[in-house]
């Protein structure tokens, strides 16, 4: 019997496909998410919109809060560690969380190095803005990739930008000749073996989710149409007028993303969405997507 193998890690991520992973800050929110049909919850201290509003250093959650959430629901529980903060990751693994998000939403702990994720039994998800970044994180042991988007804005534009960048680069690599792959690996600053995998299979070797700015069922459906495997929703649910209803609608939108009639039905009468921020007025230093490389 072998535990913590790559297949067990990436295989677990496959189980999230076609699903919605929701940010929650306490046990009560976690129950609402589970009831709405979330495939997992992400335990964190403050949702990104509040991190943005309140400022200060954002860190891993209090283990007590995470344990309460783990006790409250039967679905998998994820939690966030700061970029490069492997001690936070060790604590989360010891708590028994099911997945760790090495997240730019928290204040980075290391400006140069990400966590060596091979050293852990628990799988990791990382954000990426483009294909090179995604492949670097996979080379470090990430079992799942997500777009960075721009968390806490309720604005899907950055997630769309990152999703399109990755998908376009994948299609480009597929069209290359074998003898052009090394130069492509050099340009992407990504390992050759992973570039060759993408060339042969036309996709990442791990599951790829949308994250950062998804606020409506239509946003979620858009990301699915762009070729992503599922959706993370952060502030979009619990910063809206009717979280339970909106959460359920987004779950149904991800399953039925290709059925416009069902999308219309689930989008109706959801109450107030989160207010949202236009990203072009957001000062450069407040952009979370720029964290990590």
């Amino acid at each position: 019997m072998e535990k913590g193998t790559l297949r067990v890690k990436t295989g677990f991520a496959e189980m999230f496909k076609g699903g919605v992973i929701m940010d929650v800050t306490d046990a009560e929110q976690a129950k609402i998410a589970e009831e709405a049909g979330a495939v997992a919850v992400m335990a964190l201290e403050r949702v990104p919109a509040d991190i943005r509003a309140q400022g200060g250093v954002a860190r891993m959650s209090d283990p007590k809060k995470i344990k309460e959430i783990m006790a409250a629901v039967s679905i998998p529980v994820m939690a966030k560690a700061r970029i490069g903060h492997f001690a936070e990751a060790m604590i989360l693994e010891a708590l028994g969380v099911d997945f760790i998000d090495e997240s730019e939403v928290l204040t980075p702990a290391d400006e140069e190095h990400h966590i060596d994720k091979w050293a852990f039994k628990v799988p990791f998800v990382n954000g990426a803005r483009d294909l090179g970044e995604a492949l670097r994180r996979i080379a470090e042991g990430a079992a799942m990739i997500r777009t960075k988007g721009e968390a806490g804005t309720g604005n899907v534009v950055e997630a769309v930008r990152h999703a399109r960048a990755v998908m376009k680069a994948i299609r480009r690599i597929q069209s290359l000749r074998d003898d052009e792959l090394m130069a492509e690996a050099k340009n992407l600053q990504a390992p050759f073996e992973l570039v060759r995998y993408v060339h042969e299979h036309g996709r990442l070797p791990v599951v790829n989710f949308a994250a950062g700015g998804v606020a409506t069922p239509a946003d979620a459906a858009l990301m699915m149409h762009l070729g992503l495997d599922g959706v993370f929703v952060g502030s979009g649910i619990f910063k809206s007028g009717d979280p339970a209803r909106r959460a359920k609608a987004i779950v149904r939108a991800v399953t039925h993303y290709n059925d416009p009639e069902i999308l219309a039905e689930v989008s109706e009468d959801l109450g107030e969405p989160m207010v949202g921020i236009n990203i072009d007025v957001l000062p450069e230093e407040e952009r979370m997507a720029k964290r990590g490389w």
């Binding site: 072998e2 067990v8 677990f12 039967s74 099911d98 039994k121 799988p123």
Partner: peptide
């Protein structure tokens, strides 16, 4: 029984 073999860190191959 759901999750009878434990959480993700206990997932395995055999």
């Amino acid at each position: 029984r759901r999750n009878a073999f434990g959480r993700q860190v206990d997932s395995f191959e055999a």
